[in-house]
Amino acid sequence: MTTALGTLTWDRAVDRPDLLAASTHAAISGWAAVEPAVADAVVVTPIDPDLADTAAMTDAYDLPLAASVNCVLVAGRREGVERTAACLVRATTRADVNNAVKRLLDVRKASFLPMDRATAESGMEYGGITPLGLPTGYRVLADAAVGGDDLVIIGSGVRRSKVALPGSLLLRAPGVEVVDGLAIG
């Protein structure tokens, strides 16, 4: 099965482990084993790694900006215990870290993880971080607006490719918590 989106050609992610971080491929394959329709619904495409950042990718491959979903890693502390989360928001918005995320993590202050820490702890490349295959311990918070039947584009764990799947399916991915109002602007 091949899908077209923008000027890119997409293939089933379960068939292309060469285009995914090992943890991402394991997460997608495990999910597909439980929910067989996932094998056909989650697709991947190679891209130029220099174009992995959302703005560059959407321009280069004729993709709508609203189709991209950014995954940002956030952390905060409460009583000496760090609480971390991956926040999924449409690229046309940003995560409401100072209000919604802070409340959900029940911390006084929430901040984006520095790039070196985000890549080291996730085991993924910057520009490719995805909610599929994150280490245990991360909450995965998704803005409700990510849902819908249209394909959304997320990271693959590496900069050289992107994953796409229906937004409604992403909201049903294992461990995802759907949050109204996680994104602003």
Score class of each variant (00 low, 15 high):
A67Q: 03
E79T: 10
F112Q: 00
R77Y: 14
E121P: 12
C71T: 04
T119K: 04
G137M: 06
N99M: 07
V107W: 02
T58I: 11
A95N: 07
T84N: 09
R78Q: 09
V81K: 11
R83P: 12
G147N: 10
G127L: 01
N98Y: 01
G76R: 00
A100L: 01
R103I: 11
A60D: 01
Y126F: 08
R83K: 13
A100G: 13
P114L: 10
V140Y: 09
T58R: 03
R90M: 15
L134G: 04
A91V: 11
D59Q: 14
V107C: 05
A144K: 06
L104Q: 07
A144F: 13
V101I: 14
D106A: 14
I129S: 06
G147A: 09
L141S: 05
D116K: 11
T58D: 01
T92Q: 00
A95L: 14
K109W: 08
D116N: 15
L88S: 08
R94E: 00
R90P: 11
L134P: 11
R139Y: 06
N99Q: 10
L141C: 06
R117G: 15
L105I: 08
I129P: 00
L65M: 05
C71P: 02
R117F: 10
T58A: 13
A95E: 05
L105A: 11
A144I: 15
C87S: 00
S122V: 10
N70W: 07
A110Q: 00
D150Y: 09
T130W: 04
V74W: 04
E82P: 08
D116G: 07
F112R: 01
A118E: 03
E79G: 15
T58K: 03
L104C: 14
V81M: 14
D116F: 08
G123F: 04
L141I: 09
L63M: 03
P135S: 05
E125Y: 03
E79C: 13
G80A: 11
P135C: 12
A95Q: 02
A75N: 08
Y126L: 11
V74E: 00
T92N: 05
R139N: 15
